[in-house]
Structures are given as C-alpha cells and as structure tokens.
Simulated assay, not measured.
Amino acid sequence: MIRIVTAVAAGGISGTLLRFATVNWVASNWPRHFYVGTLAVNIVGCLLIGLLYGLFLLRPEVPVEVRAGLIAGFLGGLTTFSSFSLDTVRLLESGQVLLALGYTAVSVFGGLLATWAGLSLTKL
C-alpha cells in the first residue's frame, strides 16, 4: 500500500506543479484571460485520463502503482474543479455573464469530448 500512496503523492506533486506553472504563465501573459490556464489543464487532463484509461484497459498488466500515480496522482493534481469554479465565479462577479456561461459550457462539454477522444484513441 505504501508504494501506491508514494506513487499517488509523487504524481500529485508533479501534476500540481504543472498546473501552477501553466495557470501562472497564462495569467502573467494574458491577465484578462486568466481562466484559460485552468481551462487548458482541464481539457488536456480530460484527454489524458481518457487515453490512459483506455490504455490501461488494453494493458491490465500495468502495475497498480503506475495507474494510480498517473490517474489519481498526476491528473488529480493537474486538473481541478475548484479552480474552474472560482474562475467562473470571478467572471460572474465582474459582470461577464456570457463569458462565464461559455467558459462553463466549454469546460464541461470540452472535457467530456476530450475524455471520449482520449479513450477512442486507444481503440484505433
């Protein structure tokens, strides 16, 4: 069990640092579009979770530590619904209702589509 916990922790640290770097880079380069960093990591994370899930279905011999480290750890640290929620509330508070609704729709439906696309890539 300690090996799984260690793998999830290491993956979580890596994913969290990548999200932090991405969101800060976007915010410093496009401050008016601060939400794009969270959107990008969520869409990419959804694509990757679909792809990894599909690959792990095809390759059940992949050790549970690797699977847990990548999915629960890395992707759990990379993607974040709480940041998405805060970004949406910030857009609403600034009176950008249409942008907030669009951001929500693209995040949810884009994430679902990216997850499906990642899973579909494993079936090619």
Score class of each variant (00 low, 15 high):
83 S>Y: 12
110 G>H: 12
100 A>E: 07
122 T>D: 14
90 R>L: 15
58 L>N: 12
80 T>G: 05
73 G>M: 14
85 S>N: 08
124 L>W: 12
121 L>A: 13
81 F>Y: 12
97 V>M: 09
79 T>M: 06
122 T>A: 13
59 R>N: 15
100 A>H: 03
73 G>C: 10
108 V>P: 07
111 G>Y: 08
63 P>H: 15
84 F>I: 07
96 Q>V: 02
80 T>N: 10
88 T>A: 10
83 S>F: 04
79 T>A: 12
109 F>H: 02
91 L>I: 09
119 L>C: 06
119 L>M: 04
70 L>K: 10
64 V>W: 01
79 T>W: 00
98 L>N: 13
83 S>C: 02
108 V>C: 02
107 S>N: 07
57 L>N: 09
73 G>T: 11
67 R>I: 13
97 V>N: 01
108 V>H: 06
57 L>E: 14
65 E>V: 10
62 V>A: 07
66 V>L: 11
106 V>S: 10
80 T>R: 11
119 L>W: 13
60 P>K: 00
99 L>G: 00
104 T>D: 01
74 F>V: 08
104 T>P: 00
86 L>S: 08
79 T>F: 04
80 T>Y: 10
121 L>V: 15
106 V>F: 10
60 P>N: 06
119 L>Q: 07
95 G>N: 11
70 L>H: 03
76 G>P: 10
77 G>P: 05
63 P>T: 15
93 E>N: 13
78 L>C: 13
94 S>R: 15
71 I>C: 05
113 L>I: 14
104 T>H: 01
118 G>Q: 08
106 V>R: 04
86 L>D: 01
110 G>P: 07
95 G>F: 01
106 V>A: 11
69 G>Q: 07
101 L>W: 14
66 V>K: 07
116 W>V: 05
72 A>K: 06
59 R>S: 05
111 G>C: 10
64 V>Y: 10
88 T>W: 03
76 G>S: 10
89 V>A: 04
61 E>W: 03
59 R>L: 05
63 P>V: 07
73 G>I: 04
85 S>D: 10
101 L>I: 15
119 L>D: 02
80 T>A: 11
85 S>K: 12
83 S>R: 05
103 Y>H: 09
119 L>F: 13
94 S>K: 03
57 L>Y: 01
83 S>I: 05
69 G>T: 07
101 L>Q: 04
85 S>E: 15
93 E>T: 10
110 G>L: 12
117 A>S: 11
103 Y>R: 01
102 G>S: 09
117 A>F: 14
83 S>A: 15
76 G>M: 12
101 L>G: 11
89 V>I: 14
61 E>R: 03
122 T>P: 04
100 A>Q: 00
78 L>P: 07
108 V>N: 07
100 A>I: 00
77 G>M: 06
104 T>L: 15
60 P>E: 08
105 A>W: 09
113 L>P: 02
97 V>S: 02
75 L>K: 06
107 S>G: 11
60 P>Q: 01
65 E>R: 00
112 L>A: 05
